[in-house]
Computed example of a mutant assay.
Amino acid sequence: MNWDAFITCAVTGSGQSQHKSDKIPVTPQQIAEACVEAAKAGAAVAHVHVRDPETGAPSRDPALYREVVARVRDSGTDVILNLTAGMGGDIVLGSAEAPLPLKKGGTDLIGATERLVHVEELLPEICTLDCGTMNFAEADYVMTNTPGTLRAMAQRIQAAGVKPEIEVFDTGHLWLAKALVAEGLIDDPVMVQLCMGIPYGAPNDLNTLMAMVNNMPEGWVYSMFSIGRMQLPYAAQSVLAGGNIRVGLEDNIWLEKGVPASNGQLVERAATMLSAMNVGLKTPAQVREQLNLKKRW
């Protein structure tokens, strides 16, 4: 049991949810406002992707990150920014029978240095490190993160003084995370996000969850989430399993059946659940102390 937890809000993500809910923030202004909204509702951390302001499609344009970060910082809101470094690892095969050449318009595969341009420029307190390759529920798409790429990224993140949040989508990803820590590429305290219920990674059943929790080294700080209707139940499950919480429109667009959510509403619901369980809600300052983060502004 975790009696003092923090909430991360993943405010927009990189999926196609902008076509399913008009509450998905798309422009840098909307994304920054979502971060502020989440912080005011009780989130200590805002996890940020950016999108093409015209189309809503996922983007990795450093200029868009630059504007989001500037707007959040100019707002005076005390929230820890966690910028994704997951973009740029997408492979889409041509087809099952003719995998090569790779599909144009879907494949976006770049090197470790380019994936971290915005992180090294903007120096957020946290950025993500997707600790492994995975099939999603798409016929020919692979999220690609090789051990060599991850080692190179971890080294650059460490040199920048940014805390990596290790994204664990399956049990083997936790194994690789342990190797990176053992090699001195990730500093203590180690921060992990258990990503449950995403096809075809770790299913969101209790046995799989607890198998990963029970294999978590002592002293590691972990959060967890699931997607869709399981997001809010995992807010309770997480603290019961000793972890912290992630909610937000990246993972779930509904407050309840038929009721579209905002990021603030999802954070408020999670905070209410914590209060009902007599669990304390950590502030950004307390999370910085716990994770030894470097506040830049």
Rank of each mutant, 00 (worst) to 15 (best):
A5Q: 07
T8E: 14
T8N: 11
G13V: 11
G15K: 05
Q16W: 01
Q16P: 07
K20L: 15
K20A: 14
I24C: 02
T27C: 01
T27Y: 00
T27N: 03
E33T: 04
A34D: 03
V36C: 05
E37R: 10
V45S: 08
V50D: 00
R51T: 01
R51P: 03
P53D: 04
E54W: 01
E54Q: 14
A57Q: 15
P58L: 05
R60W: 10
Y65M: 03
Y65S: 03
Y65F: 15
A70C: 05
V72G: 01
D74K: 15
T77Q: 14
L81T: 05
N82W: 01
L83K: 07
G88S: 06
V92T: 14
A96D: 13
P99L: 01
L102P: 00
L102R: 04
L102E: 00
G106N: 02
T107E: 08
I110G: 03
A112K: 08
T113L: 14
E114H: 10
R115Y: 08
L116N: 10
V117T: 14
E120A: 05
L123N: 06
L123M: 11
E125I: 06
I126Y: 06
I126H: 07
T128D: 05
L129P: 00
C131Y: 02
F136W: 09
M143P: 01
P147I: 11
R151K: 15
M153C: 11
I157H: 08
Q158V: 00
Q158G: 02
V162A: 09
V162P: 06
P164N: 07
P164I: 05
P164E: 05
I166Q: 06
F169I: 11
T171G: 09
G172C: 12
L176M: 13
K178C: 09
L180S: 07
V181E: 12
I186W: 03
M196Y: 09
G197W: 07
I198S: 04
G201H: 09
A202N: 06
P203A: 12
P203Y: 11
N204H: 14
D205M: 02
M212I: 15
V213G: 06
P217C: 12
W220C: 06
V221E: 15
V221G: 11
Y222F: 15
Y222Q: 10
M224Q: 13
F225W: 10
S226I: 06
S226H: 04
A235G: 10
A235T: 13
V239L: 11
A241R: 06
A241Q: 04
G242S: 13
G248W: 04
W254M: 13
E256W: 02
K257N: 13
G258I: 02
V259Q: 05
P260T: 09
S262M: 02
S262D: 11
N263K: 12
G264W: 01
L266P: 11
L266F: 04
A270V: 10
A270S: 12
A271K: 12
A276V: 12
V279N: 11
V279M: 07
V279D: 08
G280V: 02
L281R: 11
K282C: 12
R288F: 09
L291F: 11
N292C: 09
W297E: 09
